[in-house]
Amino acid sequence: MIEMVIEQRRRSLGGGLEVGRVLPFAKRRMVGPFVFFDHMGPLDVAAGAGRDLDVRPHPHIGLSTVTYLFSGEIMHRDSVGSQQAIRPQEVNWMTAGSGITHSERFEKARATGDHLHGIQAWVALPTADEEEAPSFSHHAGADLPHWSDAGVEGHLIAGSAYGLTAAARTHSPLFYAHLEMVPGAVAEIPSDFSERALYVATGAVEFDGARYEAGKMLVLGKGASKLRATEQATVMLLGGEPIGERFLYWNFVSSSQDRLAQAAEDWKAGRMKLPDADHDEFIPLPDGPPPSTKS
């Protein structure tokens, strides 16, 4: 059963890079702990592209960012000292907790040209973990369990599903998987979670007798379910247990509006440390009113 279909909304991040924003959506803010879901690209970048393609240092609180690529390369640098390139079928998992800053640079693309395509998701932290110390981990190879079955190639990015568990440390029950499906292949969707969704990144699938093409997220009801690829398809499966209401302001996520306001003031006042290896510029706080606070 489908509860809702969400279509990506395209927006520019500058330098020709476009993303398809899926979550949050006005009528569906979260799926399990997943509070943000952006489809990056696809974008062909010619060698010599300008630096406006890069994402300059910026802050986060209260979440884990999960970056996963189908193609291309991004260089990550953060305020806990991490410097790590991410490549296809690898994961950069950054837990912001009480506060972290990071940049995402497309250095390979500018140097030699590249084809950029991937997904960035944010996983909100449970209330008890929102202020934990920030951290970063990179995962590749055996950290992301792989399986192959009847035309489906799967990679488990995070959490537990299909009898497998990925290596990234998560803070609440969830699953996140990447499926490559040949035409006619059928895949089961994990049913052991209260909230689930699938996102068609490329190609098209059939679910409950209807066809859905790239750029659509299907938010699913409970119970066993399957999807079938009607053409070559790349599909992301995600979900988990709800963790309660979350407020968002710019790059900040929290169970408290007061905490969002504090984070905004901290960034504006320069109280959040920039990455040691990338501290010469940053993205300023957006114009507009700060998050409202409770009386």
Score class of each variant (00 low, 15 high):
E73T: 14
T293F: 00
W122D: 09
I74A: 10
P88M: 13
P42V: 14
R169L: 13
W147Q: 02
P275V: 09
I100W: 00
K27A: 14
P183S: 10
M236G: 00
L227I: 15
A264V: 15
S295V: 11
A263G: 11
R271L: 15
D192Y: 01
V253G: 07
E231V: 13
Q262G: 02
P145M: 09
F25N: 15
E130V: 02
G163V: 05
W267N: 09
R228C: 08
E18S: 06
G99D: 09
R56S: 11
L227M: 12
G270T: 12
I243C: 06
L13M: 06
L220I: 11
S225F: 01
H102G: 03
A166Y: 11
V205D: 08
L116W: 10
S98L: 07
G14T: 03
H279K: 12
V91N: 04
P286H: 07
G15M: 08
D114L: 11
K294T: 12
F25K: 11
F106R: 05
P183N: 06
E206I: 04
P57L: 09
S225V: 00
G48Q: 09
F106P: 11
F193T: 02
H76L: 12
D129F: 03
T112A: 15
P57T: 10
D114A: 14
F193R: 05
S148K: 09
P24S: 08
M94Q: 10
L260F: 10
A269Y: 07
R51N: 05
R77A: 07
W122G: 06
G159F: 09
L53E: 00
W122F: 08
L198S: 01
